Amino acid sequence: MNRIEKVLNKGEKLLIPYITPEFPIKNSTLPLLEALHYAGSDMIEIGIPFSDPIADGPTIQHSSYIALKNGVNLRKIFNIVSEFRKKFSTPIILMGYFNSILNFGISKFVSESVENGIDGLIVPDLPVDEADELINFSQKYGLSNIFLVAPTSTTERIKLISSKSTHFAYCVSVTGVTGERENFGGDEFENFMRRVKENSTKPFVVGFGISKREHVLKAWEWADGAVVGSALIKKLFNIDEISKCSEIAYEFIKELKNGLVQEKKQIW
């Protein structure tokens, strides 16, 4: 059974942080993954840095730029996840643009992802109706495909995305790029969530704009999980110590998941 499926079968609301590997400094990725695990992350999303990230706002764009300067590539990401897998079973999801996957080779990318302990894949610039080759290889090797639902998605498209997503779909809370926002929710968001709920046969999570505990709780009212990316990345800006990166990530995700952290201690 896929690790993602095991988590979903618990029936609990999920918190899924997103990190950019080797940001903000070299060799910070594995300690960050460990800290996020101990903070209670239900799954962890790792971005594949790309030179032209069309779905990402300035925060994640900047982190990708730093990560590329720090020498990140797919092979390094695979090696880090493989090392993480020696001790932890938290599902890992890669989010990357199709050009990176195509250049690596679709079959090779999928097989090596699974071989190194990666559980799922999000490709924001690959429409679901053009993803058959990726889906076929993913089914062959056991990689979970997670497709994006936008507020502009029609009823028929929501049904299609739900059916093509292996275990769950990912709802983009607003039209536009990633980025933390002061306000989250509102009538438009709730109408969107209602449409997704009525037309999905699989669980779904919500991302884009989540930066506070109250945002997470709002997402949990409607969806099975909340994804937090830019807000976490922003907290790591200009940090130059690995232990400090881990501490900041641990405390932030612990707070988003459970409320205010009462006791701060390093356990990783």
Score class of each variant (00 low, 15 high):
residue 164 K to R: 14
residue 123 V to E: 02
residue 98 F to G: 05
residue 105 G to N: 01
residue 67 A to E: 02
residue 149 V to C: 07
residue 46 I to N: 00
residue 96 G to Y: 08
residue 167 H to G: 03
residue 133 E to H: 09
residue 159 K to M: 09
residue 106 I to Y: 00
residue 74 L to G: 00
residue 74 L to C: 02
residue 51 S to Q: 06
residue 85 R to K: 11
residue 133 E to L: 14
residue 119 D to K: 11
residue 94 L to F: 14
residue 148 L to G: 02
residue 170 Y to L: 13
residue 60 I to K: 05
residue 132 D to C: 06
residue 85 R to A: 08
residue 59 T to E: 01
residue 41 S to H: 04
residue 131 A to T: 10
residue 142 G to I: 14
residue 132 D to V: 14
residue 99 N to M: 11
residue 145 N to H: 03
residue 170 Y to V: 15
residue 79 N to R: 15
residue 64 S to E: 04
residue 67 A to F: 03
residue 40 G to V: 12
residue 145 N to W: 04
residue 115 E to D: 13
residue 86 K to C: 02
residue 147 F to Q: 05
residue 99 N to C: 10
residue 54 I to E: 00
residue 86 K to R: 15
residue 64 S to A: 08
residue 62 H to V: 04
residue 144 S to D: 07
residue 121 L to V: 12
residue 139 Q to F: 08
residue 72 V to N: 00
residue 135 I to V: 11
residue 83 E to S: 11
residue 100 S to L: 14
residue 120 G to F: 07
residue 138 S to K: 13
residue 173 S to Q: 07
residue 97 Y to A: 07
residue 115 E to R: 15
residue 45 E to A: 04
residue 138 S to M: 11
residue 105 G to Q: 07
residue 112 E to S: 11
residue 116 N to M: 13
residue 172 V to D: 00
residue 94 L to P: 00
residue 137 F to W: 13
residue 64 S to T: 05
residue 57 G to N: 01
residue 112 E to N: 07
residue 171 C to Q: 01
residue 53 P to M: 12
residue 55 A to Y: 07
residue 49 P to D: 01
residue 127 P to A: 07
residue 135 I to Y: 03
residue 51 S to V: 12
